[in-house]
Simulated assay, not measured.
Amino acid sequence: MIKNSDISALAANFREYITQNKIEEERDQLIEDLTSRNQDLNQFAYITSHNLRAPLSNLIGLIDILDYDVLDEYNKTIVDMFRDSAFKLNETIYDLTQMLSIKSDKKLNIENVSIGSIFKKVCNYFNKQIHKLGIYIHTDFQCETVPFPKSYLESILMNLMSNSMKYHSASRPLRIDITTRLNEDGKVTMIFSDNGIGIDLNKHKDRIFGLNQRFHSHVNGSGVGLFITKTQITSMGGKIAVESELDKGCTFIVTFK
């Protein structure tokens, strides 16, 4: 004899099984759709960025060899606007490429990288701006090497340097201090500070490392440099923090795993 309660329990279990099976099928289909869309989006962004870089580099090169002195004021203004637009587009493409590389680099070559040599390379890249702004740079690399991907470390220092130069104070020469040390727990900490215009952390602390975030309207920028920096550091198990006051500068504390 089968009791009605047993039939009811069996039916309930069967309905639960059907519902659960349907949920799992929908989940698997959703994962498949999202994976496919993500691959298509990455491929589109990769092709777009790489196909634009070559002609854009050619345009920037043509601007550089242009005989600027023979132009009248009107045409000089047009060329200056064209140059600014070209550099902004180049910066946008560079940021896009960086974000794609972070997402696609599953296995990065981690090696003991010399912070001093990487920073020297970064300073050579910004050589014109350093001399133009009269930047004073002080380094104290108590810990000379760090186990980290070389390309990521170069990108981090590039973004921090660029950030300091963009937001320097017009009332005093820019000073940049970089120190490294080995903590008691065996981790390397890098402290990157400047005496620029600073950031109001009471207003913007939660958005400092957000995507497309800008905190000073008078400076041109894409607002993704610090986002990329944090993503690169945290993807390797590290941490980054910021200390800042308006008109007193910024200090970024990076702790490598």
Rank of each mutant, 00 (worst) to 15 (best):
I7K: 12
L174K: 03
L10M: 13
K22W: 00
S36M: 12
F227G: 01
Y136A: 14
I240G: 01
N51L: 10
M158W: 01
L153I: 12
S244G: 05
D64I: 06
A45M: 08
H168E: 10
D40R: 11
Q142T: 07
V254L: 10
I18V: 13
I233T: 06
G196N: 03
V122S: 03
N51Y: 04
V242F: 00
F148C: 08
L52A: 14
V122F: 01
K150A: 13
T19Y: 00
K107A: 07
R37H: 05
S164T: 11
T145L: 08
D6P: 08
K248E: 08
E32T: 15
D206K: 15
S85V: 08
F87S: 09
L30Q: 08
N124K: 12
V254N: 03
Y68E: 14
L62E: 12
E32R: 15
N195E: 05
I23W: 00
A45V: 09
K76R: 14
L62R: 13
G61D: 04
I253G: 01
L10P: 08
L108R: 14
K3P: 11
K120R: 11
N4V: 14
E32D: 14
N90W: 00
S217Y: 06
I2P: 12
A12G: 15
L96F: 02
G249N: 07
N112P: 07
D69P: 11
S49H: 03
L71H: 07
F227Q: 02
D40S: 12
I65W: 00
A12P: 07
G225C: 13
P147H: 11
I65V: 12
I115T: 10
T180S: 14
H204T: 07
S117K: 15
Y74K: 15
C143V: 11
F209D: 02
I197D: 02
C250H: 02
D28P: 03
I191H: 01
N212A: 09
E91N: 13
Y74R: 15
S162M: 09
N212P: 03
E24Y: 04
E154Y: 04
Y74F: 07
Q39H: 06
I102E: 03
K3W: 04
K120L: 06
K150Q: 13
T251M: 05
V146L: 04
F14S: 15
I137K: 02
L52P: 05
L226M: 11
E32G: 08
D140F: 00
G134R: 10
C123G: 07
E16L: 14
Q129F: 00
K230G: 04
I178L: 07
I102A: 06
I7T: 09
D40G: 06
S57A: 11
T139M: 02
S169P: 09
D67V: 13
E243G: 09
I178P: 01
I18M: 03
D200P: 10
K230Y: 01
M190G: 04
L182R: 13
I253L: 04
S162C: 08
I228R: 00
F126A: 12
T229A: 07
R214K: 15
I191R: 05
F148V: 09
L174P: 05
I63V: 13
L182Y: 00
F119R: 05
T251D: 01
F252W: 02
S85T: 13
K76C: 07
S169W: 01
G198D: 02
G198A: 06
R27H: 05
N90Y: 01
G238V: 04
M190D: 03
I60Y: 00
Y68K: 15
I60E: 05
I65P: 02
D140N: 14
